[in-house]
């Protein structure tokens, strides 16, 4: 049994030794992830866990990768992607150059979905997609653009539901149970580590996507991150959140207007 105090001490260690700050993450989820990791790795006690995280940097990396949630999929919530196609991309298309930031992109399924949308709108060549996450190991997967082949049937259905009219398999080559996505898509993706907790704004964007990341943060950290997004958006830029996330009750709420039923906001000042 791991007590709340134990977790607090562990989080302090992480900050002191490695500079990662998880203290403003949602406690319930964090605790569940830590207990799950102990069961997975057969770690018998809290003391043992703390010792390994403190002394073994390889294990620390695994720890960070496992306590953060890296579950994602392509074209998740097809109606959201449909709205990107129909409402957002035509507006972005009037710009000479399009900058998009996927904040907390995990293994990159959403980034590749976006690249496909841009390609189909004939905008990919003048776009750059910045994909950032705090885990270097998941970013390696974004770079490769290789996803499990057994997911493709579902992704293809979501792609069609999002308004896609092509054969989804034209975007990847199947190889030994993996689907490797077109190089053309990856060429426009810029990959970098970025920690939403501690790092600052690094560019000005036309569209920021951060879906199902804020749910893991407490209110205070959510506010900080939303401010960071506000600072990183140009006037009339767009911010897209997960289906259960909102700008309501946040400090930046008054600067944004929600577009439609999808969780997409436009910066109005």
């Amino acid at each position: 049994m791991i007590e709340d105090e134990d977790i607090a001490i562990l989080l302090n260690d992480l900050f002191d030794i490695y500079g990662y700050d998880f203290t403003r993450y949602s406690k319930a989820s964090l605790k569940r992830r830590i207990i799950r990791l102990c069961a997975l790795d057969k770690i018998p006690s809290y003391a043992e866990l703390r010792y390994r995280v403190r002394t073994d940097e390889t294990y620390f990396k695994r720890f960070v990768e496992e306590i953060t949630v890296n579950v994602t999929e392509m074209f998740r919530d097809p109606s959201f992607y449909k709205s990107l196609r129909e409402d957002i991309l035509p507006v972005l298309g009037t710009k000479p150059f399009i900058r998009i930031w996927h904040a907390g992109c995990s293994t990159g399924e959403e980034v590749y979905s976006m690249a496909i949308l841009l390609k189909e709108a004939n905008l990919l060549r003048k776009s750059l997609l910045y994909a950032t996450d705090l885990n270097p190991s998941v970013l390696e997967k974004v770079r490769k653009g290789i996803f499990p082949l057994n997911q493709m049937k579902q992704y293809s259905e979501s792609y069609i539901a999002s308004g896609g009219i092509h054969d989804f398999s034209m975007y990847y080559t199947a190889h030994y149970g993996q689907a490797k996505f077109d190089k053309e898509l990856a060429e426009k993706i810029i990959i970098s580590t970025h920690n939403l907790v501690s790092d600052s704004s690094f560019n000005e964007f036309d569209l920021i996507l951060c879906r199902n990341v804020l749910i893991y943060f407490d209110k205070e950290l959510q506010d900080r991150v939303l401010k960071l997004f506000d600072e990183s958006l140009g006037t009339l830029g767009y911010l897209a959140l997960g289906t259960k996330e909102t700008l309501k009750f946040s400090a930046v709420q008054s600067k944004f207007r929600q577009l439609n039923r999808e969780k997409i906001w436009k910066k109005i000042i």
Binding site: S26, A28, S29, R32, R33, V69, V71, N212, I215, K244
Partner: peptide
Amino acid sequence: TFSLDYSE
């Protein structure tokens, strides 16, 4: 309060 989680 509630919190949501999109893990496995």
